[in-house]
Design a protein around this nucleic acid. Structure first.
Length: 572
DNA sequence: GCCGTTTTCGGCCCGACTGTTTTCAGTCG
């Protein structure tokens, strides 16, 4: 069983235990365990197989969970989960997605009204059975009816890139607001997560009520969910929820830290504060009643004897270990990127010409680009065969002659065929400056087969990198079954690179996988996969993801000049 | 269920808001 699968089992156990009203700390232990396994750089199976290592060496995995991981790896099932599922149908878990319904009330609905899914919940509300329950009322019943729609949507999250536009619109909306002194986005948006569940905004204001009135007048607002003295939540037309907090200036840093999260990061931070005899909340750091920090984030971290930690790293992974050792990585920045090595043109499914793409890239400050159109197997995109590719490369030569200040590389995105092997002959690939290989077909193949295909591609002497290595599309398609750990090892041994595809809906390798690649010493290439000149702007999303992985300039190959990058490639 | 140079038991982050309450539980982040 793979790490994500093991993690999913633990998460489901946590959901079911929570529904049962189990000890919340026990529930948390399962969720922590799920996270620990998901974030692991190598497969749990491998740790078990290694006689020098123990699963219990992983923070968050104790004796019990180690046993359960072993059971899952060996048998693929967990008796405990089967027992829980025999008691509770999984459909009830959908009830927990209704805003305002948590485990306690969901359990009451299940017990008292035999509500086992969202349809039955709607019936019970419409029959006014819910308001009769102890602890419920007419308002709660109405709120549940309204929330059913959101629950039915599942847990679709908003792409970071989309959230970014909304944040910009909100900040613009407040730009002329006199009542506000300062406003900043926090939450998973600030941490640069690939998708965000909701938006958190933080303000310092002379007149909080006026700020909230302004918030209520945001053009794409659908409804005000709640409004208190310092906190207000709205739902936008897209369904996204946005929370605004108004805090005193002397608490701004503490609040920014608090609402940036992650929750897990904050739990660790507060634990450390406690060890120092301090208390941290969104108003500041306190020793007894005395506030010792709070105006800035730097101050808050300093009070806990830590350097300021970049938001992208605040996931309770390794950032505290690094911070305490004074070894926080100097994270890559957009300005470090010198080339873009994956893009398409009008030769296949792109819109713009080679020259237009190169011109736009140059305007963005890049020094080189690789034109990597599809190979012939990708017929839907009008993929190129060897002859067509050679004709395109003649075009590239011409464009290079015509242009100054940017180098255009002859590249290709060669398809990894279903049966294994590549869609173009080696003699063609040998003439390319840069070759990325990727899977487009047979994405549902079993793990061994698809892993073998990708490893085979890495072993081809002319392939430089694997593009979008897991094939995931956020909110749309999960990654294909691939043994990434095995792939990374081959990449390391073959001296190859792995792509971090910067497209807002892809962003794979993801942050965890990029960190794993770094562990193996496999260079990452951040590429836009642009299909038109605007697509080149996606680079910053990729950089953000790389920062979340803790990558520095040195870890990303396309921060180097092309001549240097070329030397890193072991091509025969 | 995890964790521990103060602990192998007794902790486990903390506060705002709402609705249903007569003082608080549940939910959320």
């Amino acid at each position: 069983m793979t790490n994500p699968e093991i993690a999913a089992v633990f998460d489901q156990v946590a959901d079911l235990l929570e529904f049962q009203g189990a000890n919340p700390f026990r529930v948390r232990a399962y969720r922590n365990g799920a996270r620990a396994i998901r974030d692991l750089a190598e497969s749990a199976a491998e740790v078990i197989a290694d006689p020098h290592r123990e699963l219990t060496g992983i923070a968050g995995i104790g004796k019990d969970l180690a046993g359960k991981v072993t059971t899952l790896v060996e048998t693929g099932t967990l008796p405990m989960l089967d027992e829980l599922l025999a008691e509770i149908p999984t459909s009830v878990l959908a009830i927990l997605r209704v805003p305002g319904l948590g485990p306690k009330r969901a359990a009451v609905l299940y017990r008292e009204l035999e509500v086992t899914d969202l349809d039955k919940l709607r019936e019970a509300c419409e029959a006014h059975q819910v308001r009769a329950l102890k602890g419920f009322g007419a308002k709660t019943e109405a709120a549940i009816l309204e929330g059913l729609e959101i629950a039915a949507q599942g847990d679709k999250r908003t792409y970071w890139a989309q959230a970014d536009q909304i944040v910009a619109a909100i900040l613009e909306h407040f730009a002329g607001c006199e009542a506000i002194e300062k406003i900043e986005p926090a939450g998973s948006y600030r941490r640069g997560k690939d998708t965000v569940g909701d938006l958190d905004l933080l303000a310092v204001a002379r007149d909080p009520a006026a700020v909230m009135d302004r918030f209520a007048a945001f053009p794409s607002l659908k409804q005000v969910l709640l409004r208190g003295d310092t906190k207000m939540s709205i739902r936008l037309l897209t369904g996204l929820q946005a929370d605004l907090r108004v805090v005193p200036a002397e608490s701004f840093g503490a609040a920014l830290q608090y609402f940036t999260g992650s929750k897990e990061h904050n739990v660790v931070l507060r634990g450390k504060a406690k060890d120092l005899g301090l208390k941290v909340n969104e108003y500041g750091v306190f020793r007894g009643d005395e506030q010792v920090a709070g105006a800035t984030e730097e101050e808050v971290y300093a009070a806990i004897r830590l350097p300021w930690i970049p938001p992208e790293l605040r996931e309770a992974r390794r950032e505290f270990e690094w911070a305490e050792a004074g070894r926080l990585p100097e994270l890559i920045e957009l300005a470090d990127v010198r080339g873009d090595l994956h893009m398409h043109t009008s030769w296949t499914d792109g819109i713009d010409t080679i020259e237009e793409m190169a011109t736009a890239a140059k305007a963005r400050g890049l020094k080189y680009v690789a034109i990597t159109d599809h190979s012939k197997r990708v017929s839907m995109a009008g993929g190129l065969d060897g002859d067509a590719l050679r004709r395109q490369w003649a075009d590239v030569d011409e464009a290079n002659d015509a242009m100054r200040g940017i180098r255009i590389l002859k590249g290709v995105e060669v398809d990894i065929l279903e049966k294994g092997g590549l869609d173009l002959d080696d003699d063609v690939l040998a003439q390319a400056d840069w070759v990325v290989a990727s899977v487009h077909y047979g994405q549902r193949q079993p793990r061994e087969q698809i892993t073998r295909r990708v490893i085979g591609a890495l072993q081809n002497p002319y392939v430089c990198a694997i593009a979008h290595p897991t094939g995931r599309l956020l909110n749309q398609r999960t990654s294909y079954e691939i043994d990434l750990d095995a792939v990374l090892k081959v990449a390391r041994d073959e001296g190859k690179m792995m792509e971090l595809n910067a497209h807002p809906s892809r962003l794979d390798l993801d942050d965890v996988a990029c960190a794993a690649a770094k562990n193996y010493g496999v260079p990452i290439v951040i590429s836009t996969d642009a299909h038109n000149i605007n697509g080149l702007g996606a680079m910053r999303y990729g950089v953000l993801q790389a920062r979340r992985a803790g990558l520095t300039k040195a870890d990303v190959a396309n921060t180097r000049a092309w001549a240097e990058l070329k030397k890193m490639l072991r091509r025969s």
